[in-house]
């Protein structure tokens, strides 16, 4: 039996990828002076650190310090997501090539790409001297970064819509604005809302970290406790953070599923 041979292109691609992976990892490992035995000894060292954290420091004083900081991270993430959602929504219509003019779409996409390339932490410490130490800086950093990511995701959603409803609005005499409001927005809203929630989950992790540069949130607490070698308290910070992230993730995932699936309507 004759089996058709694989196209050459695919084969070359496969070898190329394998080659890149092997060479890349060897080059990196040698450059960083990382040997396999360092990897093997790592789990033991981590275990020492983890066992130093238990029992956790659950004294009233520790809880009173840590919980407000974790809550602050939550507020930063939410407010940042709101900023990102409000600003990215109109921008995404400019960036999508079916609701915008070709040149404007390209320029907007590039701007979004550039915004997205800055990590939140870098934005945070550039903003720090202007907006001051504290959660405001963190919120702005998270918000600006979210505009970039949400703008990209939303514009891709807009580009993937069904043209039928738009045409029927046009053919029944709707203006361009009518097409936008009654044709595009209802189609994209569920997906975009679920992206907002998804971004909120990511922002929560980002805002937890921002404290390292003094932009508010729980990050400062963790790095300080680790520096002072107060491991039980560092453990408490970690556990409270993990709990909050888990709870928020679960709620947000449930809402997202509901938004995408829609409600069953009994007629």
């Amino acid at each position: 039996m004759k089996i058709p041979s694989q196209p050459l292109n695919q084969k070359i691609l496969k070898y190329l990828i394998t080659f890149l992976i092997v060479v890349g990892s060897i080059w990196s490992a040698s450059g960083l002076e990382i040997t396999p035995d360092r990897f093997l000894s790592a789990p033991g060292k981590i275990w020492i650190l983890i066992s130093a954290m238990f029992p956790l420091d659950l004294s009233q004083e520790a809880i009173d310090r840590i919980v407000p900081k974790v809550a602050e991270s939550l507020f930063i993430a939410w407010a940042g997501t709101v900023i990102g959602a409000i600003f990215s929504f109109p921008v995404s219509f400019l960036a999508a090539n079916n609701t915008s003019i070709n040149t404007i779409s390209r320029v907007t996409k590039q701007i979004l790409n550039i915004i997205r390339a800055f990590p939140e932490l870098i934005l945070a410490f550039v903003l720090l001297p202007i907006t001051g130490l504290g959660p405001l800086t963190g919120t702005l950093a998270v918000g600006i970064h979210s505009i970039g990511t949400l703008g990209k995701l939303s514009s891709e959603v807009i580009e993937g819509i069904d043209d039928g409803p738009l045409e029927s609005i046009k053919s029944s005499g709707g203006s361009k604005l009518n097409v936008l409001f009654f044709g595009v927005v209802p189609q994209v809203m569920p997906t975009i809302t679920s992206y907002w929630l998804y971004r909120f989950e990511i922002n929560l992790r980002a805002s937890a970290v921002l404290g390292i540069v003094g932009a508010g949130g729980v990050g400062a607490e963790l790095i300080n406790q680790l520096r002072f070698r107060d491991f039980p308290r560092a453990g408490t910070v970690l556990v409270v953070t993990i709990l909050m992230v888990l709870i928020v993730d679960t709620i947000s995932a449930a809402i997202r599923r509901r938004i995408i699936k829609g409600r069953e309507i009994i007629v």
């Binding site: 960083l32 990382i34 650190l49 937890a208 953070t241 993990i242 992230v245 888990l246």
Partner: peptide, 21 residues
């Protein structure tokens, strides 16, 4: 997945020492 990347980094710097490892 719940632990942010930099939290991991902080924990590992304490556990295995400062540096790229």
């Amino acid at each position: 997945r719940t632990i942010p990347d930099l939290f991991w980094a902080m924990l590992f710097t304490v556990a295995v020492g400062l540096g790229p490892f």
